[in-house]
Amino acid sequence: MPRLHASAGFGALLAFVLIIAFGAWRYDGFLTEYNLLTVLRYNSMFALVGLGMCFVIMTGGIDLSVGSVAALSSVVAAYLSPYGLAAGLAGGLVAGIAAGTINGFIISKMRILPFIATLATMLAASGVALLLSNQQSVPASYDTNFMAIGQGDFSAYAPEWVSADDAGFFGGVIRIFFGFPIPAWIALFAYLIGSLLLNLTAFGRHVLAVGGGEEASRLMGLPTDRTVFLVYVLSGMLAGMAGVILAAQFGAGQPIEGVGWELFAIASVVVGGTLLTGGKGSVAATLVGTLLLGILFTVLNFENGMGWISLSAYWQSVLRGAFLLVVVILQSRLTKSAAAPA
């Protein structure tokens, strides 16, 4: 099984590199600083919900509510944005943590299947978001520093010489470093913490043990209920953070924007090699899976601009679903091959 996990993660990384190489060869402006930073800024939200989904799936569960929770958190954050970044951030995180806590309690204490529990939370969070927003976008305040968390970077702190025409390669690297979007920094920090949690703490070992066999873990004396509860709280918190970024990036709370985010998150996790049955997974490979899907649809958008094809957002959703189906089928075959006796 470790062989399957490693090969799947390497395959996602290889596909990511090949798609970037193809984009650089075919499209002018594909590898420009603006395009790459735009991809990172936008996909940081999907990276966050994907990270939470990764931990949930590693326990053998599923969280269908992440998109609706992100939308609800964006509405709450937008309403609180006139009071500043701290208030908007806190409001969005609290909304996400509250939803995650409800999921965790229902699943770990009431023994309701994760699919049913998170489906109910998805519908409830969507309804609350629409009620709070009166079924329309909620403008966020531009008069405070709230927008910085979605639209900002640290380029104002870069040395003056890096913007000169003769700054050279090193100056360009420094310019990209300071121009790295704040949402991408947040996602990168979250993945660093997530990797440390999974690989260096007892909590990470418990997550994998529960996914490998919840009843066996319980008989071994592991805190299975607490572990399951915490992964759903973590998923809700990260969805809440994604919602805050959503409100700040688009300048408004979006009560219906999160539709389909759960599918993107599941696709990112599965493409990264995490088993849907639980027990095996990788935080780093999930990040690669998120970036792979993000760059894939960037390629489709560039191809639309070439005029050879014209794929609407609906067709891109069809392709996303087909891509996920192919990956799941391949993963299933690899699982059976790895489990077969030599």
Rank of each mutant, 00 (worst) to 15 (best):
203 F>R: 13
178 F>R: 00
230 L>Q: 14
238 L>I: 08
232 Y>M: 09
144 T>L: 08
156 A>L: 09
158 A>T: 03
220 M>C: 09
220 M>S: 14
194 G>T: 08
199 N>S: 15
209 A>N: 11
213 G>D: 10
160 E>G: 07
222 L>F: 11
218 R>V: 06
168 G>I: 00
212 G>I: 10
176 I>E: 02
201 T>F: 12
139 P>M: 06
146 F>S: 02
194 G>D: 06
154 F>W: 12
226 R>Y: 11
214 E>D: 08
192 L>V: 15
173 V>L: 12
184 A>C: 03
230 L>N: 12
148 A>L: 09
230 L>V: 14
230 L>G: 06
172 G>Y: 00
141 S>K: 05
139 P>G: 04
165 D>Y: 02
178 F>A: 01
179 G>Y: 02
206 H>C: 14
226 R>E: 09
192 L>K: 06
197 L>K: 08
210 V>G: 12
218 R>Y: 11
205 R>N: 14
232 Y>S: 08
181 P>C: 01
152 G>W: 01
146 F>E: 03
153 D>C: 05
189 F>Q: 03
158 A>C: 04
235 S>N: 08
147 M>I: 12
171 G>C: 00
170 F>H: 01
200 L>R: 15
150 G>S: 05
136 Q>N: 11
159 P>C: 04
205 R>Y: 13
201 T>L: 11
168 G>K: 00
135 Q>Y: 13
202 A>F: 13
230 L>M: 15
182 I>W: 01
192 L>F: 14
199 N>E: 14
186 I>G: 07
192 L>G: 15
199 N>Y: 15
223 P>R: 04
132 L>K: 07
133 S>P: 05
230 L>A: 15
235 S>F: 09
223 P>Q: 05
196 L>Q: 12
181 P>I: 01
222 L>H: 06
161 W>P: 02
